[in-house]
């Protein structure tokens, strides 16, 4: 097996980084800049996830020292080469955005308009790279000769849906953790006002609602992908599928993917529908559990597909 744990963890992290950025970008722009903190949180979360993913990828190479060869080649037909450049571009722009945000404090009268326009422009450009990044995690496997990966053109669809779903979920988890730490710091008088980082409970609820919608799309993508494989002309496609459905990977597939990544969070989100996070902590707990299921289930999805394709 040429590709194992470091690869699927990397695909999961890179997809989640792209998905979080994509979701936060939409949440921010569609509300006319109403979710700036969420957008920043997505960028701050995405950079370490992408960087850890790259480190895993390099360590997994047969010759890690030679990874720089990836940066001297631009091969359009190789999804790995394209992915290298997409990842490189996304991280680079994200870091530039962070540097600009940090520099804000040096301007007495707020950020100049030109810089504001630049961040807005770079943020928009990077959402294209985020979409390409999510897509690449699926295309990487789909462009191969392993029947489970290449037997259906819908694998990128499934992986993109999973990337956005896990991305939204990690945003929810991240937002809850930052909010909680802000509360603690306020209580300890370590900061004077509710910091810029606070993400409103309303936004968190909306993210959970959006994730329910994305999970439905992911569920449809999974079913279509499986049906396509079952009818694929590619040799070994239906055998590959049966490894997931009733073969050696059936347990992680049904429990980890179908239940944990899809049905349980969907059920939790529906049960929570229309409720707001208030003094009652139960709603928040349900949203947090649902999000954690999505994040862990997303990893299991990447794992079973990566391992199943090579067995």
């Amino acid at each position: 097996m040429a590709w194992s744990a470091p690869i699927y963890v990397y695909l999961w992290l890179a997809g989640m980084a792209g998905g979080a950025y994509f979701a936060a970008f939409i949440a921010d722009r569609f509300t006319g800049g109403g979710n700036r903190q969420l957008f920043r949180l997505a960028t701050y979360l995405g950079i370490p996830m992408a960087v850890i993913g790259v480190i895993l990828l390099i360590v997994d190479l047969g010759k890690p020292i030679r990874f720089w060869h990836l940066l001297t080649e631009f091969n359009v037909s190789s999804p790995m080469s394209m992915g290298t450049w997409i990842l490189f571009a996304w991280v680079l722009i994200a870091v530039v955005l962070v540097v600009i945000w940090w520099s804000e404090r040096f301007f007495d009268r707020g950020m100049p308009r030109s810089l504001q326009r630049l961040t807005s422009f770079l943020g928009g450009i990077n959402v294209i790279f985020a979409v390409l990044l999510m897509t690449y995690t699926g295309v990487l496997l789909a462009v191969s000769n392993q029947s489970l990966w290449a037997g259906s053109v819908l694998l990128p669809c499934l992986f993109v849906a999973s990337a956005i779903s896990t991305g939204i979920a990690i945003l929810i988890v991240g937002a809850m953790i930052t909010n909680a730490s802000t509360e603690v710091r306020l209580a300890l008088n370590q900061c004077s006002r509710a910091s810029d980082w606070t993400i409103s409970n309303r936004t968190i609820v909306r993210l959970a609602e959006a994730d329910a919608g994305v999970i439905v799309i992911e569920l449809l993508a999974l079913v279509s992908y499986a049906v396509w494989l079952a009818n694929s002309s590619m040799a070994g496609a239906s055998e590959g599928l049966s490894i997931l459905l009733n073969g050696s990977l059936a347990a992680p597939f049904w429990i980890g993917v179908v239940l944990l990544a899809l049905l349980i969070p969907l059920w939790l989100d529906i049960a929570n529908w229309g409720k707001q996070i208030g003094s009652n902590k139960r709603v928040a707990m349900v949203i947090a559990s649902s999000s954690l299921c999505v994040v862990i289930g997303g990893l299991i999805l990447r794992a079973v597909i990566t391992i199943g394709g090579q067995s």
Partner: peptide
């Protein structure tokens, strides 16, 4: 395969996010 991934993100999966956050606007 590239196009399917791009369409999934840019068109299909953007819909629930758009519905939810447009409402907020």
């Amino acid at each position: 395969k590239w196009l399917i991934g791009l369409v999934t993100a840019g068109v299909v999966a953007a819909v629930p996010l758009w519905l939810v956050f447009r409402r907020k606007k």
